[in-house]
């Protein structure tokens, strides 16, 4: 097993024990794994098969149904462009188009340098402040395309500074 893979498994091996030992715990366990690793790696799913006695096929069958789960490593920052009704009516589509243009990716992808993930979400629940954008969970309200470059560079700079 590779180094990173071993590290993964070390991080997740204690998770299943926190939950009752039945099928109903599968989704919470997967959620915790993703929180730890940032995604569901192949090794993690295989290890879960061992720990829970549920086949890898079955696990993927459940995990792929839910949009929350990722199967590839995430970017440094997660951008969610809300496309809910209120945001749509107030120009949410243009915000997403501008983001795709600036980041040079389409929704559902990660930028080549691994900095940003871009996702469409159906509704962040802040409809009174539409259109909204969330970056790493922080919601930016009453968005305009003009505000986008500043927001992107703020997070990009943070990433650079940390390195």
């Amino acid at each position: 097993m590779t180094g990173p893979a071993k590290k993964h498994l070390a991080q997740i091996k204690d998770i299943p024990a926190k939950y009752p030992a039945n099928r109903g715990s599968l989704i919470p366990i997967l959620q915790d794994i993703q929180e730890k690793l940032g995604y569901l790696s192949e090794e993690a799913v295989e290890e879960l098969e061992r720990l829970m006695g549920i086949s890898v096929n079955e696990i993927y069958g459940v995990a792929t149904f839910y949009t929350q789960f990722r199967f590839s490593p995430p970017g440094q920052h997660r951008i969610q462009s809300c496309q809910g009704t209120a945001c749509h009516v107030r120009g949410g589509r243009q915000i997403l188009t501008e983001l795709e243009k600036r980041l040079r990716i389409t929704a559902g992808q990660t930028t080549a340098d691994g900095q940003f993930d871009l996702e469409r979400v159906a509704c962040l629940g802040c409809c009174a402040l539409a259109p909204v954008l969330a970056v790493d969970g922080k919601v930016h309200a009453q968005m305009t395309t003009k505000k986008i470059p500043a927001i992107i560079s703020r997070y990009a700079d943070e990433g650079n500074n940390r390195r």
Binding site: G24, S25, L26, I27, F65, Y66, Q68
Partner: peptide, 26 residues
């Protein structure tokens, strides 16, 4: 508390139940 995992259909009763049972939310 059970956290939803991003499926609108799980707002439907029987799909929600399936999700709590650890299955696909159908």
């Amino acid at each position: 508390i059970k956290k939803g995992a991003g499926a609108f259909v799980c707002g439907e009763e029987t799909a929600l139940i399936a999700s709590i049972e650890g299955r696909r939310g159908m």
